[in-house]
Nucleic acid binder design. Structure first.
Lengths: 210, 210
DNA sequence: TGGACACTACTGCAATTTGCAGTAGTGTCA
DNA sequence: TGACACTACTGCAAATTGCAGTAGTGTCCA
């Protein structure tokens, strides 16, 4: 049985198209650069290139590195062909997992203090990612883009992340102000304020613009 | 071995705290209301309540429905206690999977036409979700909120979704305009435009505001 | 100079989660 | 009355994660 190409397989294959990498480099690079679009575990990222070799889309050889060896992977022309055919399939819908939102939705089992803590945790997770992307862009200006021919793609990609993070940060501020007006997390019900917000949302109006 | 409570288990338990549901209702409800914060497969959502029963957090009984039976689940007081203790653990970082972005990042294997198609697909996925949330808010105004005591939480949650979708839609427009200026997907390199955008991003400036 | 500790460079295995097929009853429209 | 969508699940294989384990390397500090 030949293995099946998943989206993750194509992600790794696309990285291999840039240059040959060792398994370790591949996991590091994939986690750094793809984390916000296609987050995958280190374990999987180690397995994918092996699958590519089985499919004939990559070759592998051991390279000495001191007293041990590293696996180096390189794309084949069949691999490049497979990449070109990737566009054939329909793009999967976005999938967004935010535990903080889930906790917020069921915040009536805890205190307003719990809600504020959840918002703080979300904020610090987002801040970390946000800063990482801004720093990355800054490093491109100083040190140059690692693959300058692909700079136009990286920039479009980074724009998405930055705008996303800014929106989430603005929402966190908004949520904090709302929670400040709650006497408790429970049984607040359909207050005038809630009804007003519902009305605005039903009209598809933005609530974050001041 | 007692099973382990995952975030998904708490999500289902929180739903059970609202009212008793059948397994089928639970999967439908969870997929409808939690899809954008905690998307889980129907299969898993059928398994979770069984786990809750094993843990003593829910009870189950079969209810006749014509010529077949349905499993009805109900939360126990131990279940309610477990929910209150949920806040003890750290909230996991957001995890955002957008295949369209991955394809965009490696768009140099295809044509600008492929990029535009990917953007169209993303746009239609987002539009569908966006519309669903706006409609839901509108239905709350007409038909009333199914759990009015929790309306303040739903509204905060919905605000997040709407702002997120609006941001993505704006970015799609932005990306389309950028792609219009590309002669090809490949080897565009560090043009003046790309450098300008990189500079703005490194300063953490928004590129979507006109 | 040697011990702690972080980083490189992976593999194995159990547990979680998904996807998909299959089974079977129900409601509705033509 | 047959097709087809919806209700209401279960079983199983495959994808993915998490974690522990193994082992060499580099660096800092005492």
């Amino acid at each position: 049985m030949t293995p099946k190409m998943t989206t993750s397989s194509y992600a790794v294959l696309a990285l291999l198209d840039l240059k040959p990498w060792t398994g370790y480099e591949l996991t590091q690079q994939a986690q750094r650069s793809l984390r916000y679009a296609w987050p995958k575990s280190e374990r999987l990222l180690y397995s994918e290139p092996k699958k590519l070799v089985k499919l004939g889309y990559a070759t592998t050889h051991k390279e000495p590195a001191g007293n041990r060896t590293r696996n180096v992977y390189e794309i084949t022309s069949e691999g490049r062909q497979a990449l070109r055919n990737w566009t054939g399939s329909r793009t999967a819908a976005p999938r967004i997992e935010i535990e903080a939102l889930l906790r917020l939705l069921f915040a009536d089992h805890g205190s307003t203090e719990d809600v504020r803590r959840t918002l703080d945790e979300l904020e610090s997770d987002i801040a970390e990612h946000h800063q990482a992307i801004v720093d990355l862009m800054a490093s491109y200006l100083d040190g140059g883009h690692p693959f300058p021919r692909r700079a136009h793609l990286s920039v479009l990609f980074a724009t998405f992340q930055i705008e996303m993070f800014k929106t989430i940060e603005k929402w966190i501020e908004f949520a904090r102000h709302e929670v400040d007006d709650w006497p408790d997390t429970r049984d607040l019900g359909m207050t005038e304020r809630t009804e007003e917000l519902t009305r605005l949302l039903a009209q598809d109006r933005s609530l974050l613009t001041h």
